[in-house]
Simulated scan of single mutants.
Amino acid sequence: MTNLSRARLIAILAPTFLLGGALVSQYVFGLHPCEMCMWQRWPHLGAIVLALIAIVLRGNPSASKLFAALAALAILGSGVTGFFHAGVEYGWWQGLTACSTVPVGGSTDDVLASIMNTPLTRCDVAPWSLFGISLAGYNGLLSLAAALAIFALLSKAKKA
């Protein structure tokens, strides 16, 4: 397996597992995401799309390498957001001061009922942690490691 192939593999697997873990924690374990949690999910979704493009373009090493690098940047973006969110949870700096989950559509009564039934999830409180590291912290660590691994493999990949 070439370094470019390894980079593409990490570029597709890392965000898929991290986003999948976030969705499992939400829908299976009931850990509802706050706004900053959602901010971490979008770059992973983008990274998955970019990695898929890199895989489709594997016959064109230059283009494939470019899209794998873009996927790594998206993963890194999620990781940076995760570190920022973890810092808010640990009280190292100020984060968001308001929640912004607002349902749209339906009658006034439907919107009001939706607001009243929506769980309030604060960005400055970690709903779960392991060894003192929150989910946001793990996303930061794992995303940073994945992005660095992709960049390292791409730097070692044969010139196209």
Rank of each mutant, 00 (worst) to 15 (best):
72 A>K: 08
31 L>E: 09
70 L>G: 13
59 G>D: 13
140 G>T: 03
81 T>L: 15
3 N>P: 03
93 W>A: 02
123 C>S: 13
90 Y>R: 11
123 C>Q: 09
12 I>E: 05
69 A>E: 12
30 G>A: 09
160 A>G: 09
158 K>N: 13
53 I>G: 04
133 I>G: 11
93 W>F: 10
139 N>M: 06
40 Q>N: 04
121 T>N: 13
61 P>F: 10
65 K>R: 15
88 V>Q: 07
103 P>I: 02
132 G>A: 01
160 A>Q: 04
126 A>H: 08
25 S>Q: 06
105 G>N: 09
63 A>M: 15
5 S>N: 12
50 L>D: 11
112 L>D: 05
114 S>F: 02
27 Y>H: 00
75 I>K: 01
125 V>R: 12
104 V>C: 00
21 G>A: 11
157 A>I: 04
131 F>I: 12
123 C>P: 06
62 S>C: 12
77 G>P: 04
71 A>T: 08
8 R>G: 05
48 I>Y: 03
23 L>C: 07
116 M>L: 08
98 A>T: 13
31 L>Y: 10
42 W>K: 05
133 I>K: 09
85 H>T: 12
150 I>T: 00
48 I>D: 09
131 F>S: 13
1 M>F: 14
93 W>G: 01
117 N>C: 12
138 Y>F: 14
11 A>R: 05
122 R>V: 10
54 A>T: 05
99 C>A: 08
128 W>S: 09
82 G>V: 02
149 A>Y: 05
96 L>P: 07
14 A>H: 04
3 N>D: 15
125 V>A: 11
98 A>L: 12
125 V>W: 06
127 P>A: 07
32 H>K: 13
47 A>M: 01
42 W>P: 01
18 L>H: 00
112 L>K: 07
139 N>A: 04
20 G>L: 02
128 W>I: 06
60 N>K: 15
22 A>T: 07
81 T>M: 14
156 K>Q: 12
73 L>S: 10
156 K>M: 08
44 H>K: 11
108 T>V: 00
13 L>S: 07
59 G>E: 13
25 S>P: 00
87 G>H: 02
31 L>V: 10
87 G>R: 03
32 H>E: 13
71 A>D: 13
106 G>S: 02
136 A>C: 03
